[in-house]
Design a protein around this nucleic acid. Structure first.
Length: 576
RNA sequence: GGCCCCUUCGACUAGCGGUUUAGGUCACCACCCUUUCAAGGUGGCGGCACGGGUUCGAAUCCCGUAGGGGUCACCA
């Protein structure tokens, strides 16, 4: 018997992490046993139906590389795979149950059922359908149905005893039949309910293992009863623990971001999401925590699912993502994936090695693709904005910047070692701390004080841009560091506006208000340095690459940062 | 509330009667490295929900209690 599993989402909102989660385990189980994984659309709720959803869910699985073997738009022998296209099948099966007396037509209106529930609540009685429709004679049921009276079809369930099934992870689960209240099989709109469609389809599609979320556990007896009513063997059941919000309730978009597309937009990698999801309630026997889907499949054992509901922890997801970004994926791969994000921001470069250098120094400091792209600005545009800490450094670094401008301009070998030696020599000659000199330089180069190593920055940016930026910084210093902080400028603008409105009252205030507006305007109009997004200086990068030949084999410095050891064009040894 | 499921550090988990002074990871803290920020290294904090049994021996088995979750729709 070949194993067949399925993922059966309903096309409602955004593709959900829970769907990805259950899909992953169904996929892993099927593949581990050489079986098939089916995608089936449970679109029987016409009220909540979202026409976009099907394509988006499929797109999600495609992004995750969890490929169904059968499904809508994919094909397969057991189609159609949209339940809305199988209504005839369900109707036939309902007829069968009606004929055998295992189901009956019920004519209560929604209002009547509401009233029933209200009464039950009032009397403190157990909630649920009380089976009142059972007493309508079959003859009457058929006549009323034939006359076009709206109705549903309900499964006739036993009142006594219990229905037992085996959950592969929990063992026997037994539920008293009195808890099962003649569930609706066919709705008055002619569409089947989940229970009917699910059982009929799982049977017809040859599903051998139903792997679904724990929330289904209490309705499994309904399904078991249905299989019995049809005279079919039931599949095996596996109920996965429910993913949880931080407060332990089941994941919901009210309390957590449950949209896979949203994580994708945030720069989460599919590999990381999957790996993270895999560790929710499951672990590798050898204890490894980083593994691909293929590795998971190869080692998959459903019995290693743990039953406590795992909390979906954003921090850990981001950690996994960061791990993939800096260690598990190749530099080339990461570069390939940030490329569209950089292009979106209008950044251009014409030397692929330049991109690699940039990504190489940025990725250990980022947790998502978006963070890499967001932090890459100063590598692609000369419009450097100085933040508060940067201006502080600049203010005290004028002399060093002037010196370095001169030194760099006469530096012949503008590669990692050349720059590094120059910097060290200079700092030593000044007999000051490294930070004293390098922080102002970093600020001039990037506009921030938290950035990659200065030697890396200088080497990657290249001589021309380094000199240009130092020049820009020096003129900014000379102009008294005009305030180009966007936040501050905005604040100033706001203050000016406020002052302006206040000025209406008092003419005496007019002059002051005008002055303020002027200063705010100047601040706003004084970006540190005009400039357009520039192209990476390919020549300089290439020059650095050439020099790399001599140092390519250099072992990482002891105690040095990993970044420095393998980062720079020089060290990476990429001839332009 | 009835029924069902679950219960190891704040979070994810390893553990399936003795190899355990309960291991790993994230988070957090400290230190190291260090030109900033990261990364990395080292160390630390912190847990078997509780109570009974069974057993020579229990985190591991049983019962009870407590807690958490799910479910009680013509939604899935």
């Amino acid at each position: 018997m070949t194993v067949v599993t399925r993922i059966a989402p309903s096309p409602t909102g955004d593709p959900h992490v829970g769907t990805a989660y259950i899909g992953l385990f169904n996929y892993a189980f099927a593949k581990r046993h050489g079986g098939r994984f089916i995608f089936r659309l449970e679109d029987t709720d016409r009220q909540r139906y979202d026409a976009q959803a099907e394509a988006r869910i499929l797109e999600m699985f495609s992004w995750l590389s969890i490929a169904p073997d059968e499904g809508p738009g994919i094909g397969g022998d057991a189609g159609p795979y949209r339940q809305s296209e199988r209504t005839d099948i369900y109707r036939q099966h309902v007829e069968q149950l009606l004929a055998s007396g295992r189901a009956y037509r019920a004519f209560e209106t929604a209002e009547e059922l509401d009233a029933m529930r209200t009464e039950q609540k009032l009397l403190g009685r157990p909630l649920g359908y009380d089976g009142r429709g059972r007493s309508v004679p079959r003859q009457d049921q058929e006549e009323r149905a034939a006359a076009g009276e709206p109705h549903v079809v309900r499964l006739l369930t036993p009142d006594d005893g219990a229905t037992v099934f085996v959950d592969e992870l929990r063992g026997e689960v037994s539920i008293l039949n009195q808890e099962i209240r003649d569930p609706v099989l066919l709705k008055s709109d002619g569409y089947p309910t989940y229970h009917l469609a699910n059982v009929v389809d799982d049977h017809l599609m040859g599903v051998t293992h139903v792997i679904r979320a724990e929330e289904w556990i209490t309705s499994t007896p309904i399904h078991v009863l249905l299989y019995q009513a049809f005279g079919w063997p039931a599949p095996r059941f596996v109920h996965m623990p429910l993913l949880r919000n931080p407060d332990k309730s089941k994941v919901s978009k009210r309390k957590l971001d449950t949209s896979v597309a949203s994580y994708r937009e945030q720069g989460i990698l599919p590999e990381a999401l999957l790996n993270f999801l895999a560790t929710m309630g499951w672990s590798m026997a050898d204890g490894s925590e980083f593994f691909s889907v293929d590795e998971m499949v190869a080692a998959f054992d459903i019995q290693r699912v743990s039953l406590g509901g795992p909390v979906f922890d954003l921090k850990k997801l981001r950690y996994f993502n960061a791990k993939y970004l800096r260690d598990l994926l190749s530099l080339d791969e990461v570069a390939r994936r940030v490329t569209p994000l950089l292009e979106e921001r209008g950044y251009r470069w014409d030397d692929h090695d330049y991109l690699l250098d940039v990504v190489d120094v940025l990725r250990p400091r980022a947790e998502t693709l978006v963070e890499i792209a967001d932090g890459a600005g100063y590598f692609f545009t000369d419009e450097v904005r100085y933040d508060d800490s940067a201006r502080k450094q600049l203010a005290g670094g004028q002399k060093y910047l002037e010196d370095l401008e001169r030194e760099f301009s006469i530096l012949e070998f503008f590669d990692y070692d050349g720059v590094d030696d120059l910097l060290h020599d200079y700092v030593q000659a000044q007999s000051v701390g490294m930070g004293k000199v390098l922080q102002p330089l970093r600020a001039a180069l990037t506009g921030t004080t938290s950035a990659p190593g200065v030697t890396d920055l200088v080497t990657i940016l290249g001589k021309r841009r380094v000199l240009q930026r130092i020049g820009q910084a020096l003129s900014a210093i000379n102009q008294g560091l005009p305030d180009d902080n966007p936040q501050r400028a905005a604040d100033a603008e706001k203050a000016a506006a406020k002052a302006a409105s206040a000025a209406k009252a008092a003419s005496a205030a007019k002059a002051a208000s005008a002055a303020k507006a002027t200063s705010a305007g100047r601040a706003k109009a004084a970006p540190a340095n005009p400039g357009t997004p520039a192209t990476a200086p390919a020549d300089e990068t290439a020059a650095a690459g050439d020099a790399a030949e001599t140092t390519a084999g250099t072992a990482p410095k002891k105690g040095g940062t990993a970044t420095k050891a393998r980062t720079t064009p020089a060290k990476r040894g990429s001839p332009g």
